[in-house]
Design a protein around this nucleic acid. Structure first.
Lengths: 203, 203
DNA sequence: AGATTTTTATGCGAAACGGTATAAAATATG
DNA sequence: CATATTTTATACCGTTTCGCATAAAAATCT
């Protein structure tokens, strides 16, 4: 007879929480500079537990990347609320992005994917794959909203939704890099505003 | 009496060359994952020589970053030849960037600064400083060309050169990230073209 | 030619690294 | 209550890491 509860000693942690704690470490230090000791301390899990639950360091990092990607897509689709004008949507995308990017203990963290996954993308094909897929998913979500905007007449009929979406993402990539490089909030907000103007037309 | 030649055993290497070889290693692996053994092998210098000439790993990396920054500025000012139209200039900036970004043994390398310095920018303040300064210098060089374009009437009189420059850079930041993420040349060239169109106006 | 100075070569050493073996603890099953 | 199963805790292992100590080599200076 099998109960719904798994046999054996129950886990003393929540996997999702642990991945979030690991993500913070990777976000600050990058993948290579994050040691298992640091990860173990941050998650309050000793190494064998980490290995048992997530596999080796690379797999834990990949889990953290996927988790971030999912969170980002959720935040993005909230910001792209079709009940609001495209211009407001884009401004909202950039504003929520900056809220995330500018948070940080010692310095602004930027985007977790762009700031840390790029460094490993050559040596670790799976990291490159997640990074590429994340960027594409982001583009596609914006593209859908752009298509709607063309249908509605928020954008000219001859506007190319795919291209505009990539340009809109490009501004966000720049915000991510510049935030991590230490740009001020004011500078970044100005770039975000001009990005909105350029893509949606100056108001 | 002192001769112009330095006393002692002469160096068996050219510093600039060595920094270039170290840069290749850092570019592929990132700062943290690049070991001194690998750097020593790539430069054909044993570790004590590396230390004597450049200091520790971080200082060598900073030298590589500075070197890349200088090279990039040189390439940029060549591309921004004021004898040619602004549109051609921008297209040339993106084309030369992509030539560099898409080169790579196993996968496209992207931009050395954006791909590797971002990861270390939180933990190493000096890296963050070089990264920030490099992005700003790049913006400024483009801004100068934009100012000229406004004077000449290549851009509308009310165009803001500083903002347009940052947007132009933003497209390049995105090219850098996407190249390292594995985007195809065609996709990247399309983004570059649409970036030119957006900033200079569709032809 | 001998002394001085700088660079090269070999090799070491302490610390940190990722990963795991082993055994105790905590639950479900029979 | 005994057994099976899973997770936790401690400790360890071999490797790699960075950085340096030491001495030989190659040049200039006196």
């Amino acid at each position: 007879m099998r109960s719904e509860k798994k046999q054996g000693r129950p886990r003393a942690f929540d996997a999702k929480t642990v991945i979030g704690q690991a993500r913070e470490v990777f976000w600050d230090k990058g993948f290579s500079a994050a040691s298992l000791d640091t990860l173990s301390a941050a998650t309050k899990l000793n190494r064998p537990s980490l290995y048992g639950a997530f596999g080796d360091k690379e797999e834990l990092y990949l889990d953290a990347l996927e988790d971030y990607r999912e969170d980002s897509m959720d935040v993005l689709s909230e910001a792209l609320d079709p009940a609001l004008p495209l211009r407001d949507n884009l401004a909202s995308v950039y504003a929520t992005a900056l809220k995330i990017y500018l948070h940080g203990e010692t310095a602004a963290r930027g985007c977790f994917l762009i700031s840390t996954a790029t460094a490993e993308a050559i040596q670790h094909a799976r990291v490159r794959e997640v990074l590429g897929r994340s960027l594409n998913d982001f583009d596609d979500a914006i593209k859908e909203r752009m298509e709607l905007a063309v249908e509605r007449g928020e954008l000219p009929a001859d506007a190319d939704p795919a291209i505009l979406a990539r340009l809109a993402s490009a501004v966000m990539h720049s915000l991510a890099v510049r935030a991590r490089a230490g740009d001020t909030r004011e500078t970044l907000e100005a770039l975000a505003r001009s990005g909105v103007d350029l893509i949606c037309g100056r108001k």
